[in-house]
Nucleic acid binder design. Sequence first.
DNA 1: CCCCTTTATAGTCGTGATGACTATTAGTCA
DNA 2: TGACTAATAGTCATCACGACTATAAAGGGG
Lengths: 238, 238
Amino acid sequence: MDYDKYAHEPFAVTVDLAVLTIAEGALHALLVERGQEPYAGHWALPGGFVHPDESAETAARRELAEETGLSDLSGLHLEQLRTYSEPDRDPRMRVVSVAFAALLPDPPEPHGGSDAAEARWVPYGKAGPLAFDHDRILADAHERVGAKLEYTCLATAFCPPEFTLGELQQVYETVWGTTLDRPNFRRKVLATPGFVEAVPGAARLTGGRGKPAALYRAGPAATLHPPLLRPSPEGRPA
Amino acid sequence: MDYDKYAHEPFAVTVDLAVLTIAEGALHALLVERGQEPYAGHWALPGGFVHPDESAETAARRELAEETGLSDLSGLHLEQLRTYSEPDRDPRMRVVSVAFAALLPDPPEPHGGSDAAEARWVPYGKAGPLAFDHDRILADAHERVGAKLEYTCLATAFCPPEFTLGELQQVYETVWGTTLDRPNFRRKVLATPGFVEAVPGAARLTGGRGKPAALYRAGPAATLHPPLLRPSPEGRPA
DNA sequence: CCCCTTTATAGTCGTGATGACTATTAGTCA
DNA sequence: TGACTAATAGTCATCACGACTATAAAGGGG
């Protein structure tokens, strides 16, 4: 391969972050408002350039810390989504963007970081058309997360360190946009070894009403075998 | 964002292809032998630079056509795997590579294309250490394909347009490295609506021996609901 | 030509997972 | 004290699936 032949081509490499959380029973995405053209006034996904000495994963963590002002990104779930490389996706120059999906438990209040305009949590689908191809990236992230809930233990990444089964079920219901039967969900989760572990003797009042729920924390398992399938949209025989 | 600040950084963007097929009951990968340093004499995944006017997907198809000399890439399954961007993955320069997994039915005989050295089908895992991080890319592709067999209809991408259920089962067994019960596999596949469609009245002699098998073609379904789970490695209760 | 091998296909049986329920417990609020 | 709410316990029928056995349809070797 002739490296020098293409070494001068001006490719910029960026990361874009689809940061999702659940607040007030609804899925929210972290968005920034663009101040300049193109797409001035539109919302966009947070992101930025990959530095010469960074991997895309490192850049994603750095950008997320910069734009949210958050420091405890240790428990964060960060996962590469895919790379978007259409030649015309940025009108100014050739930009190849590695997109990531990130999940956060409690939505921390973001404050404008060093780099970009102020970041805000926006309910999923309520932000009008996003800049560039970010609508598609966000939709891809949503679809990916929804699919991974079925066969992995990813749902706990949306939950605080200790959570009730009701909160865990809310994650599934919010991301999938469905309702689940509570006793059956409970039976399934508890029957899956390593999904959750009971916190002995602990209980939380769920907003004051009703019987206090037992607390659990994430277990060592990473995958769900057999999976927890979402109810089929069609009238499937199963 | 200040674009000009980083526009001069020398990022090269390449594609790497993990092209898989099944030949003689074994999984094979398409590899090229490197003629120059670094990694001279090692095998590597086919790939090359993304041109300024191309998306990574377009570049992947072009490189594949160039290195295999193949023209009928229409029925090819090509899927983005992930992007590898460690700063030191190529000792010469900063290269970000978008990796793809590709599946082919019948292994066409590759002949050295315009770009690289001769390409060859090599049994999976029998090629010694590959160049760069290509061992990991190939392993990631294998893992991804194995996982997608469980919950998608991807297996038909390894099969010719018309195939027997025995051939389809061979795909699962080869990729997963397991054996499956034939009547149960048959029951499951036929019970999944849209997975395969019978070719009326057609049958194929399976190498001359045994009862001729009925022929099927891929159906319209894309996903398997419920999935066809591979046998668990551990003694799982299910 | 008969029988044996090989492979495809048909069916059976028991168990476990799951959807749809009902009942009970343990809290708050009026 | 009595609604109301939410968590938890349990039941029951159905379905999916693993483990089998049986039959059908081809070729090959004596």
